[in-house]
């Protein structure tokens, strides 16, 4: 197990190196420059480029960047007036992570419960309602759901603060909005896993033991249908924890998602690089963690 984890961590570093390299060079392919203000004179542009080291040959820039990276220096933003990128991420990432975690927990717990209920009464009324909800959750974009929640729960009913970040009550509406998609995905996944599990031989045997329907579901079917869900949650968690642009914009949340998207057209190279690295690390760590968790809960999987 330890050997396996070390091997995976080694692979993770290798992948990260490839991502850094590829992203670095691909950014250069994008048209335009970071300094697109038309008022800048050519001399001023030269000064700016020199100040940020952009006048050096590309390969030199790359080695300088990688060298700095190892010392924990991710540069300063081109756009946000020389803020160190690391500070920006340190401020914004926790916000996105909190929101993402809340949405992930709400979405998967609700989704698992709804999926379980749907599977137990396949083609029944609840199954129909939950099926409809999950189709909505998957097909309706989050900004529509976010806006509707904002309008009804926030504005009309005045239940929660409309926007901003700081208190728990401010996190509730964005959490609900962000949890719709994972809830929908998990509902459908758990439903189909559970239906498959319920028609398996070991469930028939569990019934033949005289167990009640509830015991059959909770002791045998649920565990077997939740294990494959882990593989689904890993990448989903990485996506949620790294922020959602739309939800962050709608609810005016100072998360990392909006910043990442803004940085790309602005060609804010240090921000693009750093957020890509953060995103990649989170994704890879989550996949590793789910693999380890799967091995722990599923006796058939040995690392």
């Amino acid at each position: 197990m330890v050997k396996y984890i070390l091997k995976r961590l080694g692979l993770l570093l290798l992948t990260l190196f490839l991502i850094v390299t590829l992203t670095f060079f691909m950014m250069q392919v994008m048209p335009g420059t970071p300094f697109s203000n038309p008022k800048l004179t050519p001399d001023q542009l030269e000064i700016l480029k020199h100040a940020y080291g952009l006048d050096k040959p590309l390969w030199q820039q790359y080695f300088i960047y990688v060298g700095h990276m190892f010392t924990g220096n991710f540069g300063t933003s081109f756009i946000y007036t020389n803020q160190p990128v690391i500070t920006m991420i340190a401020q914004r990432l926790p916000v996105s992570m909190q929101l993402g975690t809340q949405a992930l927990i709400l979405g998967t717990v609700l989704g698992a419960l709804m999926g379980k209920a749907s599977a137990r009464r396949k083609n029944g009324l609840l199954d129909g309602i939950f099926g409809f909800l999950s189709v909505l959750g998957i097909s309706v974009p989050s900004f529509v759901i976010g806006t509707l929640i904002l309008l009804y729960l926030g504005f009309n009913l005045n239940l929660f603060p409309i926007s901003g970040w700081g208190t728990f009550s401010q996190t509730i509406m964005p959490t609900i909005a962000l949890s719709f998609a994972p809830m929908a995905v998990v509902t459908r996944f758990v439903r189909s896993e559970m239906i498959e599990s319920l028609s398996s031989d070991y469930i028939l045997l569990a019934r033949a033991k005289g167990l009640s329907e509830k015991e059959v579901v909770n002791k045998h079917a649920l565990r077997n249908s939740l294990i494959p869900m882990l593989t689904l949650i890993g990448p989903m968690a990485a996506g949620l924890l790294t922020g959602s642009v739309l939800i962050e914009k709608i609810f005016s949340i100072p998360g990392i998602g909006a910043q990442f998207v803004d940085s790309i057209p602005a060609k804010d190279f240090p921000v693009i690089m750093a957020t890509t690295i953060v995103y990649a690390v989170i994704l890879m760590v989550f996949i590793l963690v789910t693999d380890i968790l799967t091995a722990i809960v599923d006796p058939r999987v040995r690392l």
Partner: peptide, 13 residues
């Protein structure tokens, strides 16, 4: 007693 022992036992218990 069921037919297929390979699938009759709960794999996670």
């Amino acid at each position: 007693i069921f037919q297929d022992p390979m699938t009759s036992l709960d794999p996670t218990m």
